[in-house]
Design a protein around this nucleic acid. Structure first.
Lengths: 166, 166
DNA sequence: ATTCAATGGTTATAGTATACTATTACTGTT
DNA sequence: AACAGTAATAGTATACTATAACCATTGAAT
């Protein structure tokens, strides 16, 4: 990921080499888990890889269907446990409005993100816009509300689908 | 529903007369549906009333359980259909992160809201903060993203629970 | 009165998530 | 080697959330 402007995520380019995305995500995860002394087991790593199949959030049961093809006896808890671990480590995010999961673009440190989700191509872009977080903090603060967790999800059309569609 | 400062919602006061909240919500709904020429049937009205049981979002199946006690043959579709109607009319909102529904504080016109949800007392406060919407619009706009729908939900502790708790 | 669309009843099923119990595998210790 | 402690996984069942599909009824407008 770049140097400046890190908070300004983008939708993946149309013809981008997605195998690179996957490989990078897995490398980063390996390094991160090693550093933290937590175990990115084969199963967890494979689930992470499946989540990274595309930039579109994927349902837990879609992960399960794929996992089942190679892993006898995979059951819902198999997947949910792995996803729970990956979420704790910040490696995947849950998209509440879709009941689905997406790989984290920048898992190095804890953060709150915002998501732009394209209703046409399904892809999700992760933002970390300080201005949004400031506005949220101000509003909550003025009511004396102590924020523990945020969900910010905007659904619509990404620039690319917007052009090709209408 | 004052005049100025309308966008600044509040958590309901501790000892507030909640029967008033319910009565007002139902009156508003009656008037609104009459004006729009849509039918707030007995069933829909009762579901709305059940959603307004408290300021905490309520699950569809909780609504169903209560409805069943007085309405033979109530089934999931009974409730979901009513909730769909109420949502279309802006009378209730869905809280994505809870899979639950809450009465709209100000249903007169379409709007996008933000929610503060207390993890202790369960209550949800609905905000309509232009600053938040501006920040979201700017961020999405800078990526060429066309926003159709927003989910903004902050979970944490309301001022009251914050004091009594810690 | 007739008709057509909206509403609701009924049954079945899809989709999402967790509780609970048991087992395995890896640690360090004796 | 035997053991205990812990983390991870397996396996089963069930809870919870939501929709599909089909039919009967209602009710408002012509």
């Amino acid at each position: 990921m770049g140097k400046g402007n890190d908070h300004k995520a983008r939708f993946a380019e149309d013809g981008h080499d997605h195998r690179r995305c996957i490989a990078e995500a897995l490398e980063t995860a390996d390094a991160l888990c090693a550093r933290r002394g937590v175990r990115l087991t084969k199963l967890r790593r494979r689930v992470l890889e499946l989540v990274w199949t595309s930039h579109a959030p994927i349902g837990a049961y879609d992960v399960l269907r794929r996992l089942s093809q190679e892993h006898d006896g995979a059951a819902p808890p198999t997947v949910y446990r792995a996803l729970d671990f990956l979420r704790e480590q910040g490696l995947v995010h849950r998209i509440e409005s879709l009941n689905a999961f997406v790989g984290c673009a920048d898992p190095a440190e804890a953060h709150t993100s915002q998501f732009l989700i394209c209703q046409d191509c399904g892809a999700a872009a992760e933002l970390q816009d300080p201005a949004i977080n400031r506005a949220l903090a101000r509003s909550a603060g003025s009511l004396g509300f102590l924020v523990k967790d945020k969900t910010v999800e905007l659904r619509g059309l990404c620039a690319h689908c917007r052009e090709s569609g209408a």
